[in-house]
């Protein structure tokens, strides 16, 4: 095992574990936050970053090839699509009449 592959393995582990960490934080946010909009805030931002980190890690593992290019394409697509989906569903919730959580409201 030469030096370059060790450095590549370090970057793979760094990015993939980072992705798992942000997935964990967004899941905790989805479970623990008090109302719909704050939960969406957690998953919308956290999941996008976590997907990008995980895809970068897997892309470094795969290297420069057609598969690596397709993984890059998935990353670009998720970067466009995930915030749009979050925006659409939060706006639908506002139109539907969900009230944002205030500080005075008591936690269940």
């Amino acid at each position: 095992m030469n030096t370059a592959s060790i450095i590549a393995a370090l970057f793979i582990i760094l990015f993939t574990v980072g992705g798992l960490f942000f997935f964990t934080t967004s899941t905790i946010g989805l479970l623990r936050f008090p109302d719909f909009f704050t939960r969406l805030h957690a998953t919308g931002k956290g999941d996008t970053l976590a997907v990008l980190f995980s895809l970068i890690g897997i892309g470094i593992y795969e290297g420069l090839s057609l598969t690596g290019f397709k993984i890059l394409l998935i990353a670009v697509f998720m970067f466009l699509a995930q915030p749009t989906a979050t925006h659409a569903i939060s706006k639908a919730g506002m139109r539907y009449g969900l009230q944002p959580w205030k500080k005075e409201d008591s936690r269940k």
Partner: peptide
Amino acid sequence: AAISAIGT
């Protein structure tokens, strides 16, 4: 929202 997170 949760189903979307599961899909991701």
